[in-house]
Amino acid sequence: MRRFELILPESVDDCVRALAQRGPETKLLAGGTDLLPQLKNGLLKPARVIDLSGVARLRAIEPADGQGLRIGSAVTARTLELDNIVRARYLSLAESGALVGSVQVRNLATLGGNLCNAAPSADMAPPLLALDAEAVITGPKGERRVPIAAFFTGVRHTVLAPDELLVELVVPTPAPHSGGNYLRHTPRRELDIAVVGVASQLTLANGVCTKARIALAAVAPVPVRATAAEQSLEGQPVTPDRIARAADLALEVARPISDQRGSAEFRRHLVRVLTRRTLITALARASA
């Protein structure tokens, strides 16, 4: 790793001030599981690094005044995997946290880092899309909220300005009779990156689907919602046939590339398979 100056703020305000003083030469550091490999490989050579690990607020999980749950950006994947409230309300998010890297990585890797790094394959993004989460961002001009669906702007690009910081995610509490599931495909069982990831979330009322969300990872420059597939499910009972059709429709938003992790053909194939499987599980969970 090359040399840099390290700044150790203890509050969000300290962070914002530090960001404001420094230009694009500055990088925020959370768990470091994306950033450090990038520094070591020389992809990034920042002059200054701001360490977020001293900012307690970013690690908090707390109720968001009737709006659901606030999950601090520095909450780790391991915490999401194990946290009882997260597991009870947002099982797909817990499932995605449990899939990241290995336990040694999950104890460092943060939710905010996963989102701000903005890899198309980021596992924690699809569940948040399917849960209609909002990102709380702060900067010199104060706080703003962005729906997670609008957070990603391209491969490794987000709506964050260089002087802004992701503080937390606000995740609404799903209506009763809701269920979700996140699945991904990887060549290895652990220590791997999604070839395709799919999160589904269904809400039922009297046997009818009142809300459907399907979000895909690693099939487009940014995590995407399969809105046509969602609409095909809403307003009627969820049957195997409709699930199969939704899985076909999910393909419409997939614009996969071929790389060493998987060909575009395989990715398209997986979108169908995983969409169907997550919908079946989400349905079972919503019905339970």
């Binding site: 490999p37 290995s102 060549p187 290895r188 069982r189 652990e190 220590l191 791997d192 990156i193 992790r261």
Partner: peptide, 12 residues
């Protein structure tokens, strides 16, 4: 990298 050069893990 050993993330993408996939030696088998104990879970496999």
């Amino acid at each position: 990298s050993l993330l993408d050069y996939r030696k088998l893990t104990s879970a496999d």
